[in-house]
Design a protein around this nucleic acid. Structure first.
Length: 787
DNA sequence: GCATCATGTCATCGA
DNA sequence: GTTCGATGACATGAT
């Protein structure tokens, strides 16, 4: 990574344009922006100001490479930008380039990508020739080490059998590297671990060694081998995903060595265009490690990490299953979304995997995380890809663990970092994982998944409970299934649901068959209340006398329709707005609908009695008539029950006044009115109940849909946050590993940490005040990252 | 004969 | 105080 950037910068300074974008099929602008745009070569960096800002702790002019400085600044700036978080994808693309190269190197499967990567490596190598060797602390000495490091990358070449870089390496070196690699792999240690440990060793070695000193190639190799051995001793970490190597200090900085070596190799073998994998030894090693997991032994390191998270995965799986049932298509779309695709592809195919992880390839730590993510996602179907990590804080932590061990800050520092890195909750997420991993600090990252998991579990339970409730509430299975089916549909209530009252259906058909007069319907509608229209009734009676079959068929029809018409259910007011239309039909209407020729009211029966031909119908009417109707007939009530019931109070009183009625008749009429009104009221009440239930059903459906949508969005956010976290890790590591004190020695992560202040400056602070002071002066480097 | 459902009826409450 | 609507509880009839 460094090598590539530096090489790019160098070329840009020289005037040679390195069109890295050409190597990338997509997303060129971001890459160019990152590599070329912000680079020191293109940006007018004020060197003097830069050094001034160091406030006495400026990097030693000879020990630190200016480009490195700039690279660091740029990376820090990227880190800052992460805090603001626009779209992470852009930056990720840049890293993808490197990643591709790494993948190619390791897998050696793809020719073209490998070239790209090689280019990147070559670029970095070229950097050294720029005079960086002198600048880098202990750069000169590690050359032999560089060769060894270079050998690491060549392994991939060796596999490919096409690398020129191997030429420089002796067979012994290559064999040794191979053996070491295999040992590490067998032990379960990821190569990234190996790389990082190498780094650590570098730093350790550099400390004692004078920057100006040059170590013999043998010594370098020994140190490097030691680093390898150490890594071999760390396989446990590799299994758990924790990078123990970080804790192992004392590894010489192979970066500079590797760069020098790469430069040398490049000069010797390749023209500028040709890239050697040696670019940044660290990078190469990381790349190899990263690649190693997917290509050679996919999941060896990852499998152990996944194991502890299985319980939660089960819950998640359940949730996912339910979600899949509830919103199959939606979730499928989600799974097929670009993110998921990329992730899944990355996990499945080594190339894409490399690409995906490649985003962070240059960074030492994040690669394991990426691989974990990708592999994990690959293992899980569709939507599950997102959930596991999202809802598995453990898994997340495990994947991040390596860094945590490496850069575990003190609680105080961590808190500071949290505070400094942003006021928003999201910013806390971007704090390097090691910070989050600290016991006191685990606030943001670890906490994030829990609420989600809980929420999801709740939602899952809600889904189930709602369905059960729907079933228990008396919904038919068809309705319940419909309820489920409607979860994804935007349509409102189905017409079928309105048909739940089964009884009216038959009568409805009969009503519809009968011809209705507009006048009667109008009257009825104007009544607004129960379907008893005295006027229509009277008219019907009158018509009845003349025409047998014309007895207000429309009346009953309207009544029925008012009650049964599904449209009413569609137009169901919301819970608070249920209107009382009082349009329920009365049982009489049904009787009349079935027997339109029958008289409607008792009063008419007397008239009918006159007609012998209606006598059977009269019996039938009596049979179907309500008790009140029969009572009214028996009591000789002069007017119909409909009138009694539906007339306004005033008219009703007038009607009573007109007729001289006995006490019994008066009482019966009042009872009939009361019961009739109550009957209608009961019908309306039931209708309202039903409407309420249906509305609730609809509301539940809408809420479920919204919830599913929100969950989807949440998943996407979490995914992007995770990516940004990883990017943040990588950038943090990148920046931190490139930092050098005035003597050109790297800052041990165990003692120092980067802190991001609100004013935009980045400070390197000792983790423990006492510790930091003991070893070094209370170094407080401030770099102005503003550009 | 029993269970279930739809409907009617009563009693009660509140506007 | 009366009327009316709403509603729970119960009864009744049909299936």
């Amino acid at each position: 990574m460094q090598g590539l950037i530096q090489f790019t910068i160098l070329l840009s300074l020289i005037g040679v344009r390195v069109d890295v974008d050409t190597y990338l099929s997509n997303q060129l602008p971001p890459l160019r922006e990152i590599i070329l745009g912000p680079s020191s070569a293109y940006t007018q960096t004020q060197f003097h100001n830069l050094r001034n800002t160091l406030d006495g702790y400026g990097i030693h002019p000879k020990s630190v490479d200016l480009d490195q400085f700039f690279t660091t600044r740029r990376l820090l700036n990227q880190v800052r930008q992460l805090d603001r978080l626009s779209v992470p994808s852009t930056e990720l693309n840049t890293w993808l380039v490197h990643r591709d190269a790494e993948t190619v190197v390791s897998t050696s499967t793809q020719s073209s990508p490998s070239i790209t990567l090689d280019n990147g490596g070559g670029l970095e190598d070229v950097n050294n020739p720029d005079g960086t060797p002198a600048m880098r602390g202990g750069s000169g000495a590690p050359e032999s080490t560089d060769s060894s490091l270079g050998a690491v990358a060549p392994e991939g070449n060796q596999e490919q059998g096409s690398r020129d870089a191997n030429d420089d390496l002796s067979k012994e070196d290559i064999d040794l590297i191979d053996i070491l690699w295999r040992q590490d792999i067998d032990l379960g240690a990821g190569r990234e671990v190996f790389n990082y440990s190498n780094r650590q060793k570098e730093s350790e070695e550099e400390k004692p060694s004078n920057p100006s000193e040059k170590k013999d190639g043998n010594e370098d190799q020994e140190s490097w081998r030691n680093g390898v051995n150490l890594q071999g001793a760390q396989p446990v970490d590799g299994e758990t995903g924790e990078s123990i190597p970080e804790q192992i200090p004392g590894l010489g900085s192979q970066t500079s060595l590797s760069l020098q070596e790469c430069l040398r190799l490049l000069e010797a073998t390749f023209p500028f265009g040709e890239e050697s994998e040696f670019a940044a030894p660290v990078v190469t090693t990381e790349n190899v490690s990263n690649e190693e997991v997917p290509s050679t032994s996919q999941g060896l390191p990852l499998a152990p990490q996944l194991a502890p998270a299985e319980p939660q995965l089960d819950l998640e799986q359940q949730w996912q299953d339910i979600m899949a049932i509830m919103e199959l298509q939606a979730m499928e779309v989600n799974s097929s979304s670009p993110h998921s695709n990329s992730s899944s592809d990355s996990g499945s195919s080594g190339t894409t995997e490399s690409n995906d992880a490649g985003n962070f390839g240059p960074s030492t730590g994040p690669t394991p995380v990426n691989q974990d993510v990708s592999l994990h996602q690959a293992s899980l179907p569709s939507c599950s890809q997102d959930f596991p990590e999202v809802f598995n804080p453990q898994l997340d932590l495990a994947s991040i663990a390596p860094r945590a061990t490496m850069l575990r800050p003190s609680s105080s520092n961590s808190s500071n970092i949290n505070s400094t890195f942003g006021a928003t909750n999201l910013t806390g997420i971007f704090v390097p994982p090691h910070i989050n991993s600290s016991s006191t600090n685990i606030t943001s990252t670890p906490l994030l998944p829990d609420p989600f998991s809980n929420l999801l579990e709740e939602s899952m339970l809600d889904e189930i409970s709602l369905l059960d409730l729907a079933m228990e509430e008396g919904f038919s299975q068809a309705q319940a299934s419909q309820l489920e089916d409607e979860l994804d549909s935007d349509s409102g209530l189905s017409l079928d649901s309105s048909h739940s009252p089964a009884s009216p259906s038959s009568s409805e058909t009969s009503c519809s068959s009968a011809a209705s007069s507009s006048s009667t319907s109008a009257t009825f509608s104007e009544e607004g209340a129960v379907g008893y229209s005295t006027d229509s009734e009277v008219a019907a009676v009158e018509a009845e006398e003349g025409a047998v079959g014309g007895f207000q068929p429309g009346y009953s029809k309207l009544c029925r329709m008012s009650y049964q018409d599904p449209s009413q259910f569609h137009g169901l007011p919301q819970l608070g707005g249920i209107g009382h239309n009082h349009t329920y039909n009365l049982p009489l209407s049904s009787a009349f609908a079935e027997h339109p020729e029958l008289p409607l009211a008792d009063g008419k029966k007397s008239v009918r009695d006159k007609h012998s031909k209606f006598q059977p119908a009269q019996d039938l009417l009596d049979k179907h008539a309500s008790r009140d109707e029969r009572r009214a007939r028996s009591m000789k009530i002069p007017f119909s029950n409909e009138k009694i019931i539906n007339l306004p109070v005033e008219e009703f009183n007038e009607l009573l006044a007109k007729h001289h009625l006995s006490e019994g008749q008066m009482a019966l009429i009042r009872d009939i009115r009361r019961r009739g009104k109550n009957k209608m009221a009961a019908q309306n009440c039931r209708k309202r109940k039903l409407d309420t239930i249906i509305n609730l059903e609809q509301g539940v459906h809408d809420l479920r849909r919204d919830k599913a949508r929100l969950l989807k969005e949440k998943m996407e956010f979490i995914r992007s946050i995770r990516q940004m976290k990883q990017k943040m890790q990588s950038l943090y590591q990148e920046v931190f590993t490139q930092l050098r004190d005035e003597e050109g020695r790297p800052y041990p992560p165990s003692e120092y940490s980067l802190q991001y202040s609100a004013d935009g400056s980045v400070l390197i602070m000792p983790r423990g005040v006492t510790t930091g002071e003991q070893h070094r002066k209370p170094e407080k480097k401030q770099k102005d990252k503003k550009k």
